[in-house]
Nucleic acid binder design. Structure first.
Length: 786
DNA sequence: TGCCCTCGGGG
DNA sequence: GTGTACGAGGGCA
């Protein structure tokens, strides 16, 4: 039989080293596809006789083969060794002293690369009835023939769940779930009652997953809470946590992700963090923000009592939470994004969802290297603390600027790589292209590098998809998602090539890329200045110019004109991105705030870079005051901003402020998990709560007010909602912190006069670091990619 | 300046 | 599972 399927995850069976591909077929069935007989292998560069005999005598040895590969600028002889077990490779690659190649590629990736499979595949094979009992999928098929197919997006089943449990005994009370499939939502719960205990909840959960057979499992903070809890309770009840499509349990990877054979575990909270960067990350806040809908009213701090007294409400609350997580997950469209990304990077969905970014680049580059007989080095395990010069940052004079036009280089680093043929395959002493850092690369007519070639192709692909997006209105969404994913992939490419020690590149190559980029932007800036333009700021691939225009329309014309002039002259694309009016900076690099007036859809937005204060352990007043100050400055009311700041700090130092505005809160774990618990304010607040007979359970969030910051550690008193606070806050401490925050912004505006009078105590000048600023400053590329 | 430690979400 | 890794901020050397 023949089927077309989208690959969700790939793995292999330990017992017989059979490759397993899990996915959904074009007709909506869940599928396990098995490939028998694929063998692990890796290469040794020019191994000695001794090395070869060691390998041949190893019980893992199957076969060997001669190869000739391009490596570090020359062709070398290598021996390819085929072995029995993927998990033995880390051991085997250390048997000899010579260099091992491609000995750190996960086995399922090795398979996908070798058969050059994309995210969707056509399979010819036969149904395996006797294997059906080993998997939860609708069908199990033996692969006789497999090849990549045009990518398609099947309907995937998403299951979201949430658990309510006892804080003290950890016992699970209820698991609520919401399932999304083909546009419909189905809900339910598993709970303890007269006839059902925790054991039956846990077994019920396993059954639910097995029967529903979802492709995606989500929830809110399931990675860090619900899944570890399930694992713990399953163990306590001696129940196998067999929720995989092969009945194996989920496994925690690096204290971060969970991996489950056949399904993707995709925590909605992580997705929200990555995509949205919300001010607060709580389910209630985020669901109100995205869905205009909040959590049900249950007090989870007193969950045991709530469960005793309001069981039905707790069940409702639990289901609602699973529903909210599901709706958030759908709303932010992270699944679509990852599906597109898996399409363009030719990887299973799980690998783009829960894998590192270098995996995407590996997927493209390793296939290409194999095709062209280029050796695949191992990832360097060197500690790479060495930094190198990154992007160019133009220093900004402190002040308030009008009608600023912002120009952006389109794909600056990919453009540099393509233009200068930068690649590990072209790096050569004989190269006629010399980078500003001294690295030399062969010219494209002598040898075209594979990285520039791939990037050029990706750029062309993207333009092509964009064209289709415009002509094929019916499939606009699809093409738009695809072009965006290609952009992400290209960004990933230069991110990986530019920041770390990636297997195919090195420092010389990374710094050649950034050096060319600096050369390009600085020469354009000086051209602009020679033409009489006022360049006030620039960072890596952006240039800020004071247009001198009175109206937005004039500024837009100016921006368009500049962008087309320079783009033509330089044979690069410099896009006119936005107009800000006004723009404010106190003179530090990477810190500014501006009001956007163009493009129209962002008109009125306030853009703040580099000034944000940490939200979680700052007190309310701090962030509110900062926001107010920016509002005033960007309304050009600088004096008003100063006056406001001065008045506020005076008020605080005089104690004329509500206690609520000074509360700091953070969560506290078990005290003995801290290296230096006694010096931590949150721990000390929790200890005092216990002394006072207040409830404290490790993991709880604790609120406090600082009462004496002159002592080490600072003295704090817990702040309990609804109870009077009988201590005097350290108003001097609070006014100092407020002053620090506000001075970061205001200090530059009026240097002679201290912006704010010192409140009672002497405070040394803050932010006097700009005495010897150079005109040109550089920054590490890593900063740019944050 | 750079490293180490911690939190955030969840009950 | 031939796989290592979130991002921001404060404290401290």
């Amino acid at each position: 039989m023949k089927i077309k399927m989208r690959i969700i995850t790939a793995s292999y069976r330990q017992n017989d080293v059979t490759v397993e591909l899990f996915g959904r077929s074009s007709d909506g069935k869940s599928v396990t596809a098995l490939f028998f007989g694929f063998k692990p292998y890796f290469d040794y560069v020019d191994p000695s006789e001794d090395c070869i005999s060691k390998m041949k005598n190893n019980p893992e040895f199957i076969d060997m083969e001669d190869k000739n590969l391009f490596l570090n600028g020359e062709n070398v002889d290598v021996k390819r060794f085929y072995v029995k077990s993927p998990w033995k490779v880390p051991e085997l690659r250390k048997i000899c002293n010579c260099e091992a190649l491609a000995a750190d590629i996960p086995f399922h990736h090795r398979f996908i690369y070798d058969y050059d499979l994309g995210s969707s595949v056509n399979i010819e094979g036969e149904l395996l009835e006797d294997e059906k009992k080993n998997y939860t999928t609708d069908i199990v098929i033996k692969i006789n023939k497999i090849e990549t197919a045009e990518s398609f997006n099947p309907d995937l089943k998403i299951l979201s769940f949430d658990i309510e449990n006892s804080i003290s005994t950890r016992e699970i009370f209820v698991i609520g779930y919401s399932i999304y499939f083909k546009g419909k939502i189905q809900q339910g719960e598993l709970s303890s009652n007269e006839t059902s205990d925790e054991k039956s909840i846990l077994n019920g959960f396993n059954d639910l997953i097995t029967e529903e057979d979802p492709d995606i499992i989500t929830g809110y903070n399931i990675d860090g809470y619900d899944l570890p809890l399930l694992e713990e309770r399953m163990r306590a009840n001696r129940i196998h946590f067999n929720t995989g499509r092969d009945f194996l349990p989920p496994r925690r990877i690096m204290d971060q992700f969970w991996r489950l054979h056949g399904r993707v575990i995709d925590d909605a909270w992580w997705a929200v963090k990555k995509v949205l960067h919300p001010k607060h990350e709580s389910l209630n806040f985020v669901s109100n923000l995205l869905l205009n809908e909040g959590k049900e009213n249950v007090n989870r701090i007193y969950i045991e009592n709530e469960w005793k007294n309001r069981r039905d409400d707790v069940v409702k609350y639990c289901i609602k939470d699973s529903y909210l997580a599901l709706m958030i997950y759908l709303k932010i469209r992270i699944l679509d994004r990852n599906l597109y990304l898996s399409t363009v990077s030719m990887l299973p969905l799980d690998d783009v969802t829960n894998g590192g970014t270098s995996t995407y680049v590996d997927s493209i580059l390793i296939r290409r290297a194999d095709r062209e007989s280029i050796g695949v080095p191992m990832s360097a395990r060197r500690s790479s603390n060495e930094t190198y010069e990154g992007g160019y940052v133009h220093t900004m004079e402190p002040g308030l600027y009008d009608m600023i036009v912002v120009l952006d280089f389109k794909s600056m680093y990919p453009s540099m790589i393509i233009k200068h043929n930068i690649c590990f395959t072209t790096l050569s002493k004989n190269g006629e292209i010399t980078a500003p850092n001294g690295a030399k690369f062969l010219s494209p007519d002598v040898k075209k590098g594979i990285i520039p070639d791939i990037l050029e192709q990706l750029m062309k692909d993207r333009d092509e998809v964009k064209k289709q997006m415009k002509t094929d209105k019916e499939n606009y969404e699809y093409f738009n998602g695809l072009q965006d994913a290609i952009k992400v992939l290209m960004n990933t490419f230069y991110g990986v090539l530019g920041t770390t020690f990636y297997r195919f590149t090195n420092r010389e190559i990374s710094s050649a890329i950034t050096a060319f980029a600096r050369q390009t932007i600085t020469s354009i800036i000086s051209d602009l200045e020679n033409d009489g333009n006022k360049v006030i700021y620039g960072d890596t691939d952006s240039i800020f110019i004071e247009s001198g225009k009175k109206t937005v329309d004039e500024a837009i014309d100016f921006g368009n004109k500049l962008s087309s002039e320079i783009s033509q002259r330089e044979n690069l694309v410099l896009e006119f991105e936005k107009v800000m009016d006004p723009l404010f900076s106190h003179g530090a690099k990477k810190r500014y705030a501006g009001k956007i007036v163009y493009p129209e859809e962002n008109n009125g937005e306030i853009l703040v870079r580099g000034y944000e204060t940490r939200r979680t352990d700052s007190f309310n007043l701090q962030s509110e005051a900062l926001k107010k100050v920016f509002d005033l400055i960007l309304s050009r009311n600088v004096n008003g901003a100063k006056q406001y700041a001065e008045d506020l700090i005076k008020k605080v130092s005089a104690g004329d402020i509500d206690n609520e505005d000074l509360v700091i809160s953070r969560s506290v774990k078990d005290f003995d998990t801290y290296k230096n618990a006694s010096s931590m304010a949150n721990v000390n607040a929790a200890k005092k709560m216990i002394e006072r007979g207040e409830m404290f359970i490790p993991g709880m969030k604790v609120s406090w007010i600082v009462t004496n910051a002159n002592r080490t550690p600072q003295e704090v008193e817990p702040f309990i909602d609804g109870e009077t606070f009988n201590y005097r806050p350290d108003y001097i401490y609070y006014s100092k912190r407020l002053q620090e925050t506000l001075n970061r912004v205001l200090e530059s505006l009026d240097k002679e006069v201290e912006v704010v009078k010192n409140p009672q105590t002497k405070i040394t000048d803050l932010f006097n670091e700009d005495s010897n600023k150079k005109k040109s400053e550089t920054t590490n590329l890593d900063d740019f990619f944050k």
